[in-house]
Nucleic acid binder design. Sequence first.
DNA 1: GCTTGCTCTTCAAGTTACTTGAGGAGTTAC
DNA 2: GTAACTCCTCAAGTAACTTGAAGAGCAAGC
Lengths: 137, 137
Amino acid sequence: MAIAGMTIGEAAARTQCTPATIRYYEEIGLLRLVGRGANGRRAYGQPELHRLRFIRRCRDLGFPIEDVRALLDVMDAKTPSCLSARDLTLTHLNTVRARRDELEALERTLTAMAASCTEACASGATPDCTLMEELSG
Amino acid sequence: MAIAGMTIGEAAARTQCTPATIRYYEEIGLLRLVGRGANGRRAYGQPELHRLRFIRRCRDLGFPIEDVRALLDVMDAKTPSCLSARDLTLTHLNTVRARRDELEALERTLTAMAASCTEACASGATPDCTLMEELSG
DNA sequence: GCTTGCTCTTCAAGTTACTTGAGGAGTTAC
DNA sequence: GTAACTCCTCAAGTAACTTGAAGAGCAAGC
């Protein structure tokens, strides 16, 4: 069976990572060192795939690496308690909300800027256009 | 008057930058080299302040440095045309919108995850909690 | 005149989360 | 056998600054 002893390339394909990313996660200690075949190549099994998918999912959710590390610790605990994971999630959620608010404000400003230029300069640039002034603060 | 010949610290205070950031902008060529006093220290005047505020405003609006460089080129042009500035603005706006959409989706997912844990674990962690499973993908 | 403390100078390295590239070797397909 | 992959390691590059080290100027107070 090919299940026990996947190459890094296979593991990558099954977890939406790249081989380089997997090596990187190993280097920073998110992934334990895996066994090597006689040829010196890394060999991955199901537990590593599961861990990689977990990491990948957390990253897709925008958790920074250090949060992922903490979430992995929760997962690894003998009796995993979701409570600290929930705390991390809520804290992260606040960050996401704050950032989204910023982007919404940005969007309004940029939209207004572009619109004012479009109006003033419908038929070629005019001195009435305030776009550059708005960029001057 | 103190206007011609501000130190980097004064210029920084008046533009919401830090001295290190100003030196950095000089290093990457957003800011021209300014004159130095007999003591070898940089001396800033009004034109530099204006340019710094422009840069700062663009950065606050989320434009990447290379866009700022292009916007400065527009500002520096003999007959500044806002049209390419508007193009940059619209392109940037699309990026902002896309990112905001991502963050909104993230927000929904994270909110649902935290809520499901809060419900299941109102009185201490329970095995019903699916938070960790949701993180496993 | 001297010390204290703030600001200035340069240059190098650290930050986040990877990606890219170089150089070399093993493996697979034909 | 050889071409085309994939793997290995190690180093450097990315964005936009920030932080730190080492050295020197300058203003205020004693």
